[in-house]
Structure formats: structure tokens, C-alpha cells
């Protein structure tokens, strides 16, 4: 997985609670076979006025001028500021893939849906939980100041505002470690290969019909 250590970037706000994975990436894009290339379809139904499908050229799309990411001041944003329960709905990993492909590295919200939160870490995306008051304040600041950027330091677990003030955030130690090192979970599990093999030997003696049957 992609490592995450530090990041500084422009902040874009999505001022809506319960943004579900269908809004992040609608089902017609699940037909794709890649992990990358979903960026142009991120928030498709809110971002464009026309109906999108996988492979539709950008030149044929009509941008919705009211959608935050389409405003000039938020172009090239890499920090997404969001509301409660971000990423609820289906378990599709296409949602973090699309956010990542668009260029987001950090999400800041008061809460996330479980599976989405998990899926972010598997894709090198840092979802930060801040309390509601801090998030409310950030929404105010971002709106007030064009070019508002935040610096995020995962090692130190702090966010630094443009004026130098810092906000601390919590993160589970195992996840932090994996993200800092860019460790992949499969690699970690494979460090236990011997253990898995031992388990398998015993398992295959007790339940031999589960071995070699499918071919």
C-alpha cells in the first residue's frame, strides 16, 4: 500500500451529511476492471449535469457549476472536508479508489461508515476524525479564505492551520504504523505463513474432504 507520512494541501469542503458510496461513485462505474481511473467520475451525479458512464470523455460532460469541486478556488484540492457518516452504503472499494485517483490524500470528518473507513487505509488514504466543533470551524475558515491549505503530519498526529495553530487527532496505532511504513496487509499476513501452514496441516487431517475437491 501507499505510505502516508506528511501532506500539505488545499482543502475542499463537501457540506453534506451521510454522503454514501453511491454518491461517491455510482454503480455504473463498477463495471471497470482497474483500481485507477475513477477520478473523473468521483461524485459523478453531483459533479456533472449530464448522465455519466464509464469511459465517457470529459469533453462531452457538462460540469455542475454549483458543486464545490468545480469551483476554481478548490481546483487541485487534496484534503477533503466532510460531514457526519461519510462513506455509508455499499462496501465498494471503488469509493476510496475514486477519491485517491482524483488526488485526495486526506479526509477530515466527524465520523465515517466502518467499511469505508477501513477501505481508506487499505488504499493509503488518511481519514481523520475530528470533533464536530473543530470540523464546523474548518468549514467556516475554508469558506472565508481562498487558498486555505492544511498541513497533516501523521507521525506527530497533528494538523497545522495556515496561521500556525495545530489540531491534534487520534488514530489507532496498528493502522498508523501500516500507513507510515506503507505496509501491505497481505505482506503482514504472509509473515505468518508458517502459522497458516501449521493450521492447514491440522485442518486437513480433521476435514480432509475440504482439500482437493474443487478442480
Amino acid at each position: 500500500m501507499k505510505a502516508f507520512v506528511k501532506h500539505q494541501g488545499l482543502v475542499a469542503p463537501i457540506d453534506l451529511a451521510n454522503v454514501d458510496t453511491d454518491m461517491i461513485i455510482p454503480k455504473q462505474f463498477l463495471k471497470a476492471i482497474n483500481r485507477s481511473g475513477f477520478g473523473p467520475y468521483l461524485f459523478d451525479e453531483m459533479r456533472y449535469l449530464d448522465q455519466g458512464w464509464y469511459g465517457k470523455p470529459l469533453s462531452e460532460r457538462t460540469l455542475n457549476p454549483d458543486f464545490a469541486l468545480n469551483r476554481d478556488r478548490y481546483r487541485n484540492a487534496s484534503v477533503l472536508l466532510a460531514r457526519e457518516n461519510f462513506g455509508c452504503g455499499s462496501s465498494r472499494e471503488h469509493a476510496p479508489w475514486a477519491l485517491d485517483d482524483y488526488g485526495f490524500r486526506v479526509i477530515i470528518a466527524p465520523s465515517y461508515a466502518d467499511i469505508f473507513y477501513n477501505n481508506c487505509f487499505k488504499n493509503g488514504l488518511l481519514p481523520i476524525v475530528l470533533d464536530k466543533t473543530a470540523v464546523d470551524q474548518l468549514f467556516v475558515d475554508v469558506e472565508a479564505e481562498e487558498g486555505y491549505a492544511l498541513a497533516v503530519d501523521l507521525e506527530a498526529q497533528v494538523i497545522t492551520r495556515p496561521n500556525g495553530d495545530t489540531i491534534a487527532f487520534e488514530i489507532d496505532g496498528f493502522r498508523k504504523h501500516c500507513l507510515l511504513e506503507g505496509l501491505d496487509e497481505i505482506g503482514l499476513t504472509l509473515k505468518n505463513a508458517e502459522l497458516i501452514r501449521q493450521f492447514e496441516t491440522a485442518h486437513s487431517r480433521t476435514y480432509p474432504w475440504l482439500y482437493g475437491a474443487i478442480k
Binding site: S91, R92, E185, T189, L190, I196
Partner: peptide, 18 residues
Amino acid sequence: HGIGTSEVEHVLATQCLV
């Protein structure tokens, strides 16, 4: 039970799930 795509890869590669 159901799993996500990273977990599909994890199960393919390790025959296990975290």
C-alpha cells in the same frame, strides 16, 4: 459473509482473513 475487494485479494493470497 461478504468481503471487500482488498479482502478478496487477501484471501486469494493468504487463504485467511483479518
